[in-house]
Design a protein around this nucleic acid. Structure first.
Lengths: 129, 129
DNA sequence: CAGCATCCTATTGGATACTG
DNA sequence: CAGTATCCAATAGGATGCTG
């Protein structure tokens, strides 16, 4: 059966889909979400503003950027700071909690980058049969 | 523009959606996929058979397990070994390439586990407003 | 045991347009 | 600049049933 009748109406925002039981699984999904990884890794070097993030993370839409940012801020992994100015200035940075998770993610990212070609080669070899 | 006309018929299996340009992004998505993380981390200790993986990774369906496994094998991150026996015996293990990526993933997983409660607390604090 | 095929829904996420 | 809202398409992924 499952939620054949559309569920009992629980309608949370994002990523809380079915983690009511295992919190770790929820955090993992937030953190390894398509844009979450890239955002967390990008913020390791220094705090960044919205448009800086958008520029650094290729292919992200404003919608997904703000949506993911909101989620990670709620999770306490990212801190949002607003400086009162005429052109609004908002910057995002890692909290201690966020930094602890961003570190292995950044390591992963580096390793993925240096090995992407090998994976491509493996795929071609595999498909050759 | 984009794929308004349904694309030119390119129909690959999984995860290759729109990574024709950036291989690293594709690898990242495979590796941080919902079940990919868990599979890679689970195989760090030792090789496991299909049913062992299914047992260790709570909530995974056979479909997603075999689908993700197939993808990771194609990527050259996981090695699939078949022992000829009357009840078929297939075991999965990390390749050197897979191990390099599984390590930071496992670190991430550990950190997520120990910090899940803090995230939950942050969410509650955030929602209180 | 170790899977694959089919059917179907929920979630992801892109495009576009608008706001403080 | 820093978003939000709406609409819509693609995909992830669960349920179920079958096979070597």
């Amino acid at each position: 059966m499952g939620r054949s009748a559309g569920g009992t109406g629980v309608r949370r925002s994002m990523g809380d889909a079915f983690h009511s039981d295992c919190p770790a699984r929820m955090v993992l999904d937030h953190v390894t979400s398509k844009w979450g990884v890239l955002i967390l890794a990008a913020l390791r070097k220094r705090d960044l503003r919205f448009f800086e993030l958008r520029g650094r993370i290729e292919g992200v839409s404003e919608k997904m950027l703000s949506q993911t940012l909101r989620m990670l801020v709620r999770d306490g992994l990212i801190r949002r700071t607003v400086s009162p100015a005429s052109p609004p200035q908002v910057s995002y940075g890692l909290t201690a909690l966020g930094a602890a998770l961003a570190e292995p993610l950044d390591t992963l990212l580096e390793r993925v980058r240096t090995r992407a070609r090998q994976v491509l080669a493996a795929q071609r070899a595999h498909d050759a049969r």
